[in-house]
Design a protein around this nucleic acid. Structure first.
Length: 423
RNA sequence: GGAGAGAUGCCAGAGUGGUUGAAUGGGACGGUCUCGAAAACCGUUUUACGCGCAAGUGUAACGAGGGUUCGAAUCCCUCUCUCUCCGCCA
């Protein structure tokens, strides 16, 4: 969530930036300032009365020690009346604080100045393209046909065992998954990221910390018996590693990577977009996360984009990088670059990575802070990016590299896959 | 799943109703000493919020939430987690 002090000092600016995100309830900004005014006033009132009560209680203790019971009893009466006058103040304060927090949490992050205006994915701005679109053989087919032809993925079996969107990977299909995960992780570790294997279920506090709750409650699978959520991305457990921590400035940047399965309910999606590997309920992804000094987050963001670009280039896939427009960005992000690869047989671009700077929006929720040179605690910034989401990469690898008799894998994968072709 | 024990500051660990935000030890940081280091010695070392230009000061927090009391780290209840034993099990 946005920092309260920042909202107070920049109320008009916040409202203006929120418009770029197509956030209509800008009156919430004024509500927050008003609630905070009330909170301050009420808290002063509470604190002052409580101070009197504390002082009187201390006196009672001293009087009792001296054996002056009469006077002590009188004091008790005094405290009792102070307490009863405090009661409604305490309730009012609790109500205000609750409302303030609930309102604060409803405000999305404000977009950075680099974010282009716009409402739909059509308004996203292409930053650059790379790689070459392949020329496919005349009888080229989409990945779901290739997956069947080479016995790599069994969607029907997934339907039987779980439901749609939960495919089985078989034989070389399974091995390709394993090779990609291993390759992506090694690529990140070589760049200085520390590997974690996190739990894939998280508690409420973690889901709140990265912003999945309360905003995207319906998008996560919820194990209600234990109140755990299946993670939609490794971002959730990994960023939360540092929740409620104050790190040393020297410890920054913190660079982490993790492979996890990801679970998304994708309520409401159907049709062509969900065919084959295009949109699944369970998929594999390697994620990178950084916790950084606030002055460095934008430089880090660019560095992460280059890192992922290098990874995509090594896979020899045609790609493009987009800057998401205000209307297409996530609730929590200040700036997001999306990576898309071109799926040659489907003839469309598929999103395979999203690299975002959250500034202090997540870290303010999680209270991930550091002590600066002056000994002052400040919020860190957090960033993350997919490196990469597997299914659509697999879709493109299969489609773009198909020949009449096999699928040619990029060099980078040969040693991981143990072969240069799938046949 | 059953029985028992426990959860205190960066860590270890005292504290069982009244100046305890918290003894003591360790660590970390700063200083003295040293050519430098070690050792020794001195000092500093939680966070959030309110008021204040500031120094400072008030309130809250001893796993979380509630309760008892004039007063709770200390007593009671619920929950979470950890440990030990039994059961089950990859």
């Amino acid at each position: 969530m946005l920092q309260l002090a920042f909202i107070r000092q920049n109320a008009e600016f916040v409202k203006e930036r929120l418009r770029i995100k197509n956030f209509s309830e800008s009156e919430l900004v004024d509500a927050i300032v008003q609630l905070d005014d009330q909170r301050k006033k009420t808290q002063s009132e509470f604190d002052n009365t409580q101070a009197k009560i504390n002082a009187a209680s201390k006196e009672i203790g001293q009087l009792m020690a001296k054996g002056e019971k009469e006077i002590a009893e009188n004091k008790k009466q005094e405290v009792a009346s102070l307490k009863s006058s405090l009661q409604p103040v305490a309730e009012k304060l609790a109500t205000i604080e609750k409302e303030l927090n609930e309102t604060l949490v409803k405000l999305p992050n404000i977009p950075s100045e680099k974010v282009p205006p716009g409402k739909t994915p059509a308004d996203n701005v292409t930053l650059r393209e790379g790689g070459k679109k392949p020329v496919l053989p005349s009888r080229a087919v989409p990945h779901w046909d290739l997956a069947k032809k080479y016995n790599l993925i069994d969607f029907e079996l997934g339907n039987k065992i779980t439901g749609s969107g939960f495919p089985f990977y078989v034989n070389k299909g399974a091995k390709l998954q394993r090779a990609l995960i291993q390759y992506f992780l090694d690529f990140n570790i070589d760049a200085g990221y520390v590997e974690y294997q996190p739990p894939i279920m998280v508690n409420e506090a973690s889901a709140f910390g990265t912003g999945q709750l309360p905003d995207k409650e319906g998008q996560m699978y919820h194990a209600t018996e234990d109140n755990f959520y299946l993670i939609p991305t490794a971002e959730v457990p990994v960023t939360n590693i540092y929740r409620d921590e104050i790190v040393k400035e020297n410890d920054l940047p913190i660079r982490m990577t993790a492979y996890t399965p990801c679970f998304r309910r994708e309520a409401g999606s159907y049709g062509k977009d969900v065919r084959g590997l295009n949109r699944l309920h369970q998929f594999d992804k390697v994620e990178i996360v950084q916790i950084v000094h606030p002055e460095k987050s934008y430089a880090t963001h660019e560095e992460m984009v280059l890192h992922i670009e290098k990874l995509l280039q090594s896979l020899e896939l045609p790609y493009r990088i987009l800057i998401l427009c205000g209307g297409d960005m996530s609730f929590t992000s200040a700036l997001t670059y999306d990576f898309e690869v071109y799926s040659a047989a489907q003839e469309k671009w598929l999103e395979v990575s999203s690299v975002s700077n959250f500034e202090s929006y997540q870290t303010n929720r999680m209270k991930i802070r550091f002590k600066d040179a002056n000994g002052k605690t400040q919020l860190t910034h957090s960033l993350n990016g997919s490196s990469l989401a597997l299914p659509r990469i697999v879709a493109c690898l299969l489609e773009n590299n198909q020949t009449e008799k096999n699928i040619q894998l990029p060099k980078a994968l040969h040693s991981y896959f143990g072969n240069s072709v799938i046949d």
